[in-house]
Design a protein around this nucleic acid. Structure first.
Length: 204
DNA sequence: ATCACGATCTTT
DNA sequence: AAGATCGTGATG
């Protein structure tokens, strides 16, 4: 994966990450997942972004150089992972929402539960991280380092016609921004769900 | 009090 | 099918 590809605005990078592969190796083995759904979050101009109110200890990685992993805890029990994009010093990142397990499915299923169907192993940002084995220890990791425990690589290219854009999932602000990108008809893509607290907002 | 979640309930 | 509820803990 080329850092120049990631050093652009999140909403440009997000659709191009579809088909890319995140791999995570641990003592238990390696799981690789091809990304099928992403969401772009920018910095201070994006009301739904963690970086909207400026830099904090939690979101610091978002302000760093592209190609690193921003991991945060969601609602107390799930981990969510972002690929940091854009320029060093300016916050932006792409939330990885779903993917298809292409390596280490046994390990992924052990983590997620034996009765989970294959398409659902990495469906949803929390499930994606659980299947891949991402936790807080991976926050800030450089995804472009070869041989690192977690890394990002280019997968098979996906046909542009399959890439769809839509409103972001689960956010209470700026939910109508068309910053969610996914592969049309893919069973691993998470179901769209409007946030219960969503209010109308201006924006693209 | 809020929350970029997910599973499981309840009510149509 | 859609909406409500709750678990769980970091955050500011």
């Amino acid at each position: 994966m080329n850092v120049d590809l990631l050093s652009r605005p999140a909403e440009e990078v997000a659709p191009e990450l579809l088909g890319s592969v995140l791999a995570c190796k641990s003592s238990k083995g390696t799981v690789s997942i091809a990304i099928t759904e992403t969401e772009a979050y920018s910095g201070t101009a994006d009301p739904a972004s963690h970086a909207y109110r400026g830099r904090t200890p939690r979101n610091a990685v978002m302000f760093g150089p592209a190609g690193h992993l921003y991991v945060y805890r969601s609602h107390g029990l799930h981990w969510c992972a972002n690929v940091v994009t854009g320029t060093d010093g300016i916050a932006s990142a792409v939330l990885v929402r779903a993917g298809r397990v292409i390596e280490g499915e046994d390990l992924a299923r052990r983590r997620r539960g034996e009765k989970v169907e294959s398409p659902r192993l990495a469906r949803g940002p929390g499930n994606f991280c659980q299947a891949l084995g991402i936790t807080a220890e991976h926050n800030g990791a450089d995804l472009l380092l070869t041989g690192a425990s977690v890394s990002l690589s280019e997968g098979e290219s996906v046909p542009a016609a399959l890439i769809q854009a839509g409103p972001r999932v689960g956010v209470s602000k700026a939910h109508d921004w068309q910053h969610r990108f996914y592969l049309a008809g893919d069973p691993t893509v998470s179901a769209y769900r409007l946030s219960p607290r969503a209010k109308p907002s201006a924006g693209a």
